[in-house]
Amino acid sequence: MSFIEGLRNSPLFRVALLGALIALGLAAWSAFGTVGAYDVPFGMQPAPAPQAQQSAEANLPFLFAVFIVTWAAFFGYVLYVSRRQREMQGEIEALRRALDDRERSSADQRRETNPNN
């Protein structure tokens, strides 16, 4: 939760997120806007107009940019989660050893007070 709170409080992050969403929306709109049939409800052109194909290709760099940003954010977050999980593993190990110690020492104590066992 601290990570999210930290991010929420950063205005730079909010601006970046907003910008990324806008870019994503624009890229999707321009990429899908030039795809065939559903632009024209009635009276179809028989073949995809050449300029439609070319403008779709011209938008590929935008798509690339959006995907790079999205995946970078994804991997960054995964890295963060991985670190946290690693720490937690360490703490669990510590707990287990502490428990082992405690059980061993209480078993020792019982043996000391009951030598006939």
Binding site: G36, A37, P41, F42, M44
Partner: peptide, 8 residues
């Protein structure tokens, strides 16, 4: 109704 581009 509408026909997809690839129809042709």
């Amino acid at each position: 109704g509408v026909l997809p581009d690839l129809f042709f």
